[in-house]
Nucleic acid binder design. Structure first.
Lengths: 333, 333
DNA sequence: ATCATAAATGCAAACGTTTTTACAATTTTC
DNA sequence: GAAAATTGTAAAAACGTTTGCATTTATGAT
């Protein structure tokens, strides 16, 4: 009663051809006469033969599997990217080994190791921070890697993003344009390059162009979660800010509700711009003005880029910047 | 420059032992003398040897990989289950091959086939409906399967759920208790057993016990999405209902905002109970009263159950019902 | 010491494919 | 009609492990 599997050998025998020929048929190799192909296909059908991907992977050194590292499955931002990744992966016949790796918990390297052991053909990395040890691990494995929705400050790996500097600058300018002089910047860990090196720069650039002094006490560093947003509202309000650029929707939504529940009127008394334009921005009241990133596309393009790398195709540019915009809703004047 | 990999053979040679011994060391087989183990470990360290999981899978017929089918990654309900699954999988050293398979698009069987080809040791199936062809495919593969957050009307496969009949019955009773006589039931496809056979039954049971005639025109069948909720609000309102039981949070949130934007006061003029108690219920205003399902746990327990099946351990019961409750918030009186 | 037993190791055959090589059969070319 | 080129097929060697079995070495009781 054990898994008695039909192998390529059974098919070969039954069709009176060699295993090699069956393999060719299965893989669409043109060097097979139409009638033998036909004959083999008949037998495959009859025996209901299914190639074993593991054996195939061992023999061919290709597993048609890619690893995907995601910090948090339940964060809509990452889930949206993942959907783009998944769709394109399926399109190109790749399976995805997904692993969530909370950077905070130092799980990344362990998880990565287990994924690499599975001989994935490529890897997509989401999440804000790529540690040195992770980078080293990746290099040693020589597996093609693309970052999705996160930057590589060393600019060595493939990556797909929007221009975070410009986006945050525009968002800040939008708030400046309605007369705000004290604009808070609420974001995640500054050690993440995307925050500390890119977004912050955009924020500062906008202020500087408007001849407003950068005030560190208006920068709030917290984590990306609803609760964190609720929690930080009071502090931001007390800082004297009259508007905020927030870099994550869950955070922004928590923040907004903190304001709502504290009876501050949005946008009359306080304006908010968030950054990811996920469904959340439309669910809350007032709806949130947001930087619009093409989330699905970032994932999709990242995966597409990865397929090229895995095929060793020529890559015109390994850092792709997708367009962004600002969608005005009701949390700004 | 090609991937010159260190194999078990290299380690064996360098440590002057046989491959078998190295294999034993790597796999923690106790039949190795401490000092040889030590010696081998040193060499492994020195050569930075990493076992190839594909070869391992071929030789041992175990891949330490499980397949996970998810209908929609961006639906927080499923994402929450997935997180539970992922955590437990990691705990037991399994990797996850994740595939999203929109049942609507008939992708399920194709995707499933590709996953099974990868020789996964087990499979977790989410999503409301298990078609006959899918079921057949699963049976033929003899792969252990657990359904998470969905029922098996034939009661053949493992599954982890709450008692959907009781939960919806209680939710309906909650609405009856505040005097509602026309309660709408807003849900997904009735062809999905979880809706047509379980939840509906709970709804009907509550009505019947309250001696209220079941009125089919109060049952609304739509899809699980924010837009669908917004869209259906008017129809429900026009039906004369004064309250609704809704079986998906995104749907409920859309519905709520439809009501809000149409200036119906919740809960004064219309009461709502939703079903999944995701973060969304706390994000909207008024916050939504909800059936509370232990989402993370459903996923976690499902994965745990699957590990037992994969180990061929004795299973006390293959259908697990986890406790539920009703969390009262502000969308009910 | 001696033998029986148990523990540690090695040998070599799987595992189910792909891929290389070689050759036979066919087709093309002149 | 022979030589050359092409095509179709088979045989066998990888791929990097695990594992059953045989063999060697250690252990302990006599």
């Amino acid at each position: 009663m054990e898994k008695q599997t039909i192998t390529i050998y059974d098919v070969a025998r039954e069709a009176s051809v060699s295993m090699a020929t069956v393999s060719r048929v299965v893989n669409g190799n043109p060097n097979v006469r139409p009638d033998t192909r036909e004959k083999v296909l008949k037998v495959i059908e009859k025996l209901d033969y299914r190639p074993n991907a593991v054996a195939r992977g061992l023999a061919s050194h290709r597993t048609t599997t890619v690893g995907v590292l995601i910090p948090d499955l339940t964060n809509i931002f990452y889930a949206s990217l993942a959907r783009g990744i998944d769709d394109v992966a399926t399109m190109y016949k790749y399976n995805i080994i997904l692993a969530s790796a909370d950077a905070a918990k130092n799980k990344v390297d362990t998880v990565l190791e287990s994924i690499l052991a599975k001989q994935v053909d490529g890897l997509i990395f989401m999440g804000p921070h790529l540690s040195d040890s992770t980078r080293k691990e990746l290099e040693r494995s020589k597996t093609p890697v693309v970052l999705a929705g996160t930057v590589d400050p060393l600019d060595k790996l493939g990556s797909v993003n929007i221009d975070y500097v410009a986006a945050v600058k525009e968002a800040t300018q939008r708030l400046l344009s309605t007369g705000n002089e004290h604009i808070a910047f609420v974001t995640g860990a500054m050690t993440d390059p995307i925050n500390g090196q890119y977004r912050l720069k955009g924020y500062q650039a906008a202020l500087s162009e408007a001849k407003i002094a950068y005030d560190e006490s208006l920068v709030f560093e917290t984590e990306y979660s609803y609760r964190a947003g609720e929690a930080i509202w009071d502090a931001v309000k007390r800082s004297g800010a009259t508007a905020a650029v927030i870099t994550d929707d869950e955070l922004a939504v928590g923040f907004l509700n903190g304001a709502n529940d504290g009876h501050t009127r949005i946008p009359e008394d306080f304006e908010i711009i968030t950054s990811n334009n996920t469904m959340l921005t439309e669910i809350v009241r007032p709806k949130l003005t947001s930087i619009a990133q093409p989330l699905y596309d970032i994932g999709a393009v990242a995966m597409r880029l990865l397929t090229k790398m895995m095929n060793k195709e020529e890559i015109e540019q390994k850092t792709v910047l997708l367009p962004h915009s600002i969608i005005t809703r009701s949390s700004t004047k």
